[in-house]
Nucleic acid binder design. Structure first.
Lengths: 218, 218
DNA sequence: TAGATTGTTAATCGATTAACAATC
DNA sequence: TAGATTGTTAATCGATTAACAATC
């Protein structure tokens, strides 16, 4: 298929495909059909085929997709075949968690610098990284070709941190703070605010009939 | 508007509305129009009006929406007006982060119990909660009317934890582990897997001209 | 060959946006 | 009243799904 503009919905599914494919690869499965992927992911096989076909003819008619080849291709599409350096601001528990997670990742996307706004945190170690003060952000970003910034500070500090990242020349931001950030159009910003997931989850719970004060039956 | 089936897209926007409204409320803004909300959230005003109208006539023609009233209404819709107890499994950094976050929340959604699969973690304190062993999960869930489970364990443990939550009678799950979980249809599961956000963010970066690679054809 | 499965077009479905009467 | 803004219908846009020729 020719290069149409690819919708965000499609791009967001690519990492999910990659995850299943990696699992299949670990189990040394050679080949997979859109049908099988669809069952695993609860997606329509036609959608999976269409998504992949935006980027090239990766499958073989009558056969399916070669698992390792498709992994390679999706990694290319997501630019995981090149090194992408990441910086993180906010050396709290969440920051720690992300750095740890990073350690185990095979992706070429690595958190290579950690910053904090609070003097008490500066100099402490997270894995093999030393927490740096904010006034070293710009220089560090420039010198290390850091392209993505992760924000794990409290909401009220988030905009300020975002501004400093942007000033330093970052291309993309991943924001964990519960705040709506204003960024220039050319900066890509993704949100990873779990509170929103939690609140929308509550919507789907059964409403408790709590008005009649039923006692806990145990 | 009458009660049509409400789409997931609509429900997912409700927490975002709530966030902006809370900010406005903190600044003691009395009234807001869909126009103003649209500018702040980069959403079409008609969409905002339509979303809200699914649940009732909350606005006043010619005036807009009363901020505190709309907050109250959205909180009702999301069931944040009632207490919803939450349990978390996985007392690592991410688990810690979520528990801390929780402390500051005004919502009636509270993490009231923390578990871990590893003996070394049992008995340690997170805020005012003592980390409990997994064999206390079912009893605790039942006795405390815990309705939501949060999973912050490594991917390979996630399915097992999910199964135990389901066995204990949980209604909804929030999964942070990078794993695709199989759950019965009646269990609502939301994913908060930041790696996916990070990977899809990489897609939108400019491809580096790092070697002789052909540029993107778009 | 017969069966399986892709890539792609066409049909369907659903979500977003425009437009406007109602009304504050 | 005149201006503003809602709630809602109709129009548009885009995404998903079905169907099928191509082909392994």
């Amino acid at each position: 298929m020719k290069q149409t503009k690819i919708s965000e919905a499609v791009v967001r599914r690519l990492p999910i495909y990659l995850q299943v494919l990696n699992e299949l690869n670990n189990r040394e499965v050679q080949t997979v059909s859109s049908q099988e992927l669809g069952v695993k992911l609860d997606l329509n096989p036609a959608q999976i085929r269409k998504d992949l076909a935006y980027f090239g003819d990766f499958g073989r008619k009558g056969i399916g997709y070669d698992v390792t080849y498709l992994i390679e291709k999706i990694r290319q599409i997501l630019k995981l075949d090149q090194t992408i350096n990441v910086a993180l601001v906010g050396a709290g528990n969440l920051g720690h968690a992300l750095c740890n997670y990073n350690k185990y990742s095979k992706d070429n996307m690595k958190i290579i610098a950690v910053f904090d706004v609070h003097p008490s945190k500066i100099g402490s170690q997270i894995n093999n990284l030393t927490v740096m003060p904010m006034d070293m952000l710009k220089q560090t970003v420039e010198e290390n070709n850091i392209r993505i910034g992760i924000i794990t500070v409290p909401g009220f500090e988030a905009q300020n941190v975002a501004n400093q990242f942007i000033d330093a020349g970052i291309e993309g931001l991943l924001n964990f703070a519960p705040a709506i950030l204003k960024v220039p159009e050319e900066i890509r910003i993704h949100h990873a605010d779990f509170t929103k997931e939690l609140l929308s989850l509550a919507y789907y719970l059964e409403r408790e009939r709590d008005d009649e004060n039923e006692p806990n039956l145990d």
